[in-house]
Amino acid sequence: MAETGRVAGRDWAVEKDLGARSSRVVDGLRAYRMITAMWIRSTMAYRASFLMTTFGNFVATALDFVAVLLMFSRVDELGGYTLPQIAFLYGLSSTAFGLADLAVGSMEKLGRRVRDGTLDTLMVRPAPVLAQMAADQFGLRRLGRVTQGVLVLGYALATVDIDWTWAKVLLMPVMLVSGAAIFCAVFVAGASFQFVAQDAAEVQNAFTYGGTTLLQYPPTLFATELVRGVTFVLPLAFVNWVPATYVLGMPLPLGLPGWAAFLPPLVAAACCALAGLAWRAGLRSYRSTGS
């Protein structure tokens, strides 16, 4: 019996080696899909709590927009933008961020996993740690935020005055996908930083939650240095400011030319590549320091 087990085991080992050599990206997506499916089932074990937190997530973000409405109960314009125009910026920022938060938001828990040692349990599995970490604690309740973003965007599209062209129509989905990718990159970069400073998880809130809040208001409100910073250093401006001002027919921030509105996919790709490098560096540092 021992003999047959071993012989069979050896053939299987060859198979395993072949399996392990498939592409990392494909492997990662596959693991991500499987683990998120597990978490969704897990969430459904507490259906009432799930409904309540999803609703809570929706209300939380909705109240955030109520604040904007309150402001416009006192003024007609803010920084030269009308309420529908600001709602347009707001909806784009909130939807893109909501999608990123849904996809990889749990990465902000990385520091805790490092501290309590449970990251190690992910590292002995045959799947990229990044994918496993992104799927960890996958929270469908975050759909609440996406819903709010989509509703605000819907309201904006229904009320705002836009000279639609085919280019602008095409830009809409491109903007949302690129914006979500840029925010995903910020989440991953923030998690990478937590490999070095596990207790400093809150720093990334300034760029994630802070970032989406910033983008909900028109760029004309902010100091030029700040706008430059979020355009050229941490290019959050490409989530909505740059492309959305073009769609709205408003002047682009920093006097950028019109074609800059079509850069978001390139910027998003660059951001993701850099975040990937940061992640590798972070993981390498973890594997050499163990802390």
Partner: peptide, 16 residues
């Protein structure tokens, strides 16, 4: 080759 090795080893962490 962490992931390649993962197919060939099993790990049980007592308290995790």
């Amino acid at each position: 080759e962490r992931t390649r090795l993962a197919h060939r080893i099993g790990v049980v962490f007592g308290q995790r």
